[in-house]
């Protein structure tokens, strides 16, 4: 019983750290990735602001970023973390590579969701004399909202996974806890407890995301 309470105490701080990293990184990744996704859709061939070169470059950058294994990306971005938050270790420092790692993913998710809006609906908006801005804000995003929510859910879950990995190189959070206690000190029960919390977190996010998406879909 004592042991249980002790593990609970051990879990408290890292769980908050993980939540903090995940929330911050997801928000920043979304802020970075959303415009990328929109730009990908607008600049593609036949898009509303067709621009083959812009599209090719964006597409390339997204692919390159996505092909980095996350651990490598984190190491590559150490200098950037130092510039932005003044250190390379700890939860706040980890937010930098987490955000940048997840942003291209968000870009692809947004691109996919917006491209699934039927062409006819977009054409109807065009012939009503819409500005591109109106089509994005009043047609594409609202029409794609349930798909966007599901994609965002996937993003957050990915970030949870990455954040656990970041623990391996001093990122803090549940991953860090699991490695320090479970791996270095052979306290298997702490390791299991950390994993259980991560599983519960992922499940919770998925249930929340699915629920929100189907709520948004209720009238469609």
């Amino acid at each position: 019983m004592d042991r249980f309470v002790r593990i609970m105490e051990l879990l408290m701080a890292p769980t908050w750290e993980t939540l903090y990293m995940v929330v911050m990184s997801s928000v920043i990744a979304t802020l970075l990735g959303f415009p990328i996704g929109i730009a990908l859709v607008l600049t593609e061939k036949g898009g509303l602001a067709e621009s083959p070169w812009t599209h090719r470059i964006l597409d390339g950058v997204v692919n390159v970023c996505r092909s980095f294994p996350f651990i490598i990306l984190m190491i590559v971005l150490f200098p950037l973390s130092r510039i932005i938050v003044g250190t390379t270790i700890g939860t706040t420092a980890t937010i930098v590579p987490l955000s940048i790692g997840a942003a291209p993913f968000v870009g692809r998710v947004v691109e996919g969701a917006l491209k699934a809006v039927p062409m006819g609906v977009v054409e109807a908006a065009i012939v009503m004399g819409s500005r591109t801005r109106d089509i994005v804000m009043r047609v594409l995003i609202p029409e794609a909202l349930p798909a966007l929510v599901l994609g965002e859910t996937l993003t957050v879950i990915n970030v949870v996974g990455y954040s656990a990995m970041a623990g391996a190189i001093g990122g803090g959070g549940l991953g860090d806890l699991a490695i320090r206690y479970g791996f270095h000190r052979f306290q298997t029960d702490v390791l299991i407890a950390a994993v259980v919390v991560i599983i519960v977190l992922v499940q919770g996010i998925q249930v929340l995301g699915n629920g929100l998406a189907s709520y948004l879909d209720r009238n469609r």
């Binding site: 039927p118 006819g120 609906v121 054409e123 109807a124 908006a125 065009i126 012939v127 009503m128 004399g129 819409s130 500005r131 109106d134 009043r138 047609v139 609202p142 029409e143 909202l145 009238n219 469609r220």
Partner: peptide
């Protein structure tokens, strides 16, 4: 284009908007 309306075989209504919302769209634009 605002001087021309168009309707389609498959209606192409906005599924994210109610009937009123759909009719309001061109006016918002």
């Amino acid at each position: 284009r605002q001087d021309m309306g168009m309707i389609f075989q498959h209606f192409n209504l906005l599924s994210s908007r109610s009937v009123s919302g759909n009719i309001a769209y061109p006016l918002e634009v």
